[in-house]
Every structure is written in C-alpha cells, then in structure tokens.
Simulated assay, not measured.
Amino acid sequence: MKTTDLQAGESPQQLVDQTLFRDVAGHFATGVTVITTTNEGLPTGTTASAVASLSMDPPMMLVCLNRSSATHDQIAASGVFGVNILAQDQGDTASAFARKGTDKFAGIPWAPAGNGVPLIEGSLATIACRVAETTVGGTHTVFMGEVVDAAAFPGEPLTYYRGTFGRFEHGAVEKAYKSLRQHVLQRKTPLSAPLDPQVLAEQLRSRPEYIRQGMVRLESEGLVTRTADGSVLVAPITAELAQGFFAAQAAIEAGVIDTYLPHAREEQIEELRVARAALTAVVGTQASADLAGYLDAVRLFHRRLIGLSPSVQLLGAYEELSTAALWFSILPEGARTEMLDHGNLIELADAVVARDSTAARAAVRRHLDVVAGIAADAITACGGTV
C-alpha cells in the first residue's frame, strides 16, 4: 500500500534498519556472476549476485545493478550484457571485478560473444543477452534481457555467503577425503589397523560423516579394505597397485598432451614456462631441507600441464591418484631424490613449452618407468607390501 492510500489515522510502517537488513540478506547463499558489457569497443564488468532466470518463453535473464556502477551506465548505453557464472576456482576473478577504478580485465582471458559482450574463459556458464526491458527498484536498475546465446561447461560453482566467496558443502567433504588420504598414505594409522571415524574427525578437524564418505572413496582406490563386520582397515600397497596409480597419472598427462597441447593458448604456455622456471630453480638443491619447496615446484608444473584441459574434474582425478605421501614417508633420502626424477621432468617441461607432443609423451613414459621401478624396489625391500 502506498503512503497516499493510508486511511485516516493510520501511519506508514517503519522500514527495517539498513544494517540489520544487510546482515539478514547476507544469510542467503548465492552463486557468483560477473556481469559484462562493451560500449565503443571498451569492455566493462562488475561482480553481482542479484541475478536470476526470468522466463523460459522467451528465454530471459534478470540482472540488478546499482545505478552508481560504471557497468550499469555502459549496459544502459549499449543495450547488451553478458552473465558469466563463475566456477569455484574463480574467486580471484570475482574479487577483481568487485573492485572499482581498476583495469578489471587485466590478466583475465575472455572472448566476445556474437553480440560483442565479453565472456570470461573458465566460467561455469556464460549467457549473452540483449536488454528488452528495464525498471527501477530503490538504488538499482533491473535489466531484463532476452538470451541470444548460452553455454555451460563442466565444473562446480563459486558461492557467496555472508560476504565470503566459497563453495558448497561438498568442499568440506573433499577436504576431509584429502586429509584422510594423506593420513592413510603416511601410515599414521598402521597397516591393517582399523580407522575410527570419530577419532579421525577430531584429528583432521572434520565430521565423522565426512570421514565415512572419504573411506568409501579410499576403498574404491584400494587404499583401505572393509571387513565382514564393517570395520575399515588400512590396506597394504603392492607393486602392482603402485604401478596402477603411476600408469593412470601418466595416461591422464598423455591424454592432455595429445588433446589440448596443440591448441593451448599462449597465456597457458606462458604459465608452463613460469612453472618450468620454478622447477629448474630447485633442481640440484632438493636436499631434505628444501624437499618441500621442490615438491611444490613439481606439483605446480603438473597442475599447469593438466590445467591445459578445461575440466576441473580431470585435475582432481589426477591429484587423487598421487601416492607421493607414501613414498616420502618410507624411502631414504637418496631414493626420494631419484624418484623425483628431475631430468625427465625438465625434458617434459621443455617439450611442452615447445608444443612438441611427441617428445612430451616420450618424457612422460620415461618418467613413468623410473618412478614405477623405484617404487617396486622399495616394496620388494619391505617384503612385498608397504
């Protein structure tokens, strides 16, 4: 009811305090988008969470922007906008576009849609729209746009809750799984000893139900076994099982090299050059005092290589196959250094930076042979299992 419609003797209801409203509204978890447009050849954009699908027939999106936003004025002038739904690893992108007065597109790859709006690469989904209607609500303009192009990609969404970017709860489940996997590989619970979800939840700062979910995944990997009474035990690793982990990682790398290296963007190759430089900087200095730094450099290079693929799941699968924690807990220092096998890694890095798929595949194969051989020798020395 408008104030002018009040009956005699009535008074308008007092609106809620702005600070209280901001706090209460912040309890609504949302996805995160970057709204983009272009006007006279200049791209602009801003982070926004007040976005929704409006209609299926015709397909329409609704975007709310503060009228003080520069992006607001550019959309009003251009009549077009893009909705970039961010993936869970794009928190830095969200932060960059939330700032004012900076070159928000600096270092962020994007490509124009058919109507010219910038679409940010790596987004979970992108939607290109043309403005059909607008209306005003308080300090904001509501842009209602007809969808002219849309695309979705594999991955998980970035979320926004009470002023913080994050991910859905399964992020906590994933963290519990990774912590439990390290615990098992480092043999912090002895071989054939039962894993207690309650105790482990306390040790790993997680929840028992998350630990149980992690146990199911580790059972599928062969790292734990379940007895007839339901107890979960740490399983021994044989040379055959270890070979399977190494071969699976090599297969992923070879697949990425064949499928994505020939079409890699120059900025991706530059990231690999940086990772290669980090790798070469620590070669020859991987004494135990610097082992952590060397492992970080090796891990960075592999992440950049697998990152040529747009699939977050593929990188996750590659990292889930890692058994480094086991080997570096049981191998003597000399064998650890040999297992890192920096010679073949440098050859692999050189081949990848040169976009030489044939040489890169050969280096992956040589690296596989070296690490699998060292692991087999270590397992044999331990009596056939570790």
Rank of each mutant, 00 (worst) to 15 (best):
Q182P: 02
Y161L: 15
R162K: 13
A193D: 13
S231W: 04
R130N: 11
T164H: 14
T225K: 14
G155A: 10
A201N: 06
H170E: 12
R167N: 11
V216Y: 05
S206R: 01
F143S: 05
K188P: 07
A113Q: 06
R212D: 14
A250K: 00
V147H: 02
P197K: 04
F245W: 11
Q186R: 14
L191T: 07
V117L: 10
L204V: 08
T189G: 08
E121D: 14
A152K: 10
E221Q: 15
T135A: 15
A172R: 14
T189E: 09
F246E: 06
K178D: 11
L233N: 11
V232W: 00
S206Y: 01
L119C: 12
Q213L: 13
R162T: 12
A250N: 09
A193W: 01
A113K: 02
E121F: 00
Y160F: 15
L158W: 04
G155S: 07
L185I: 02
L223Y: 08
V148D: 09
A228G: 06
A125C: 04
L124P: 00
G116F: 07
E133D: 14
G107P: 03
S206P: 04
E169H: 13
A125E: 08
M144F: 11
G114F: 00
A152Q: 13
G138T: 03
V224M: 02
V224T: 14
E156D: 13
Q203G: 06
Y160V: 05
P157R: 00
R187K: 11
Y177M: 03
V136R: 15
A248I: 03
T134Q: 14
L185G: 09
I127W: 04
A228D: 14
V224H: 01
A111L: 12
E146H: 10
E174M: 04
R181T: 05
A111K: 10
T135S: 14
V147N: 07
V147K: 02
A235H: 13
R162W: 07
Q243C: 09
F165E: 11
D196M: 01
V216K: 12
R212K: 15
A132F: 00
P109V: 03
G114A: 06
A132T: 00
G214L: 08
S231T: 12
P208D: 08
